[in-house]
């Protein structure tokens, strides 16, 4: 059965709560120190995007499973959902070296690299939903 944690993000406290929830789940599931940090950083970046560009939204963290020949693979999934302005050109924000806030290495491509799977949907004027999964190695 899947464990789920929802955190509202409308302040930096929300970002910290989301990180905390993610770290707890990652620890429970048995992620190593570096992977815990990567997973938490991904949550941090996604939550910060909500806080900075959409003002309000939520981060949902849940356990996921994937049946493989080698057995059941377990992982954690982040869903970052907001009703903000949306992203006009997804292709642009997914491009490396594209920065709006002048950040180094961060941004959505950075989050994508921290995770194993990444998916983004955005409608201008309606909002953005990003999902990303990290599998337990």
């Amino acid at each position: 059965m899947s464990v789920q944690s929802n955190v509202e993000v409308h302040s930096e406290w929300g970002i910290v709560s989301a990180r905390q929830a993610g770290r707890n789940l990652a620890k429970e599931l048995g992620f190593g120190g570096v992977d815990q940090a990567r997973f938490t950083t991904a949550i941090s970046e996604l939550a910060r995007n909500i806080y900075l560009y959409a003002e309000q939204g939520e981060i949902i963290i849940e356990t996921v499973e994937n049946s493989r020949i080698t057995g059941v693979q377990r992982g954690l999934k982040i869903t970052a959902r907001d009703r903000g302005p949306g992203i006009k050109s997804i292709r642009e924000v997914m491009e490396d070296g594209y920065t709006t806030s002048g950040g180094l290495g961060a941004g959505l491509p950075g989050v994508k690299r921290l995770m194993d799977e990444f998916d983004i949907d955005s409608v201008t004027g309606e909002g953005t939903e990003i999902t990303a999964i990290k599998w337990l190695r």
């Binding site: 570096v34 990567r38 490396d96 180094l104 690299r113």
Partner: peptide, 23 residues
Amino acid sequence: DFLIEIMMGYGMAYREHQILRDK
């Protein structure tokens, strides 16, 4: 654990650097 967290930014910059280098 604290230090790992501090290094995350460098890690992300490092991976971006590799991709930009390929580009």
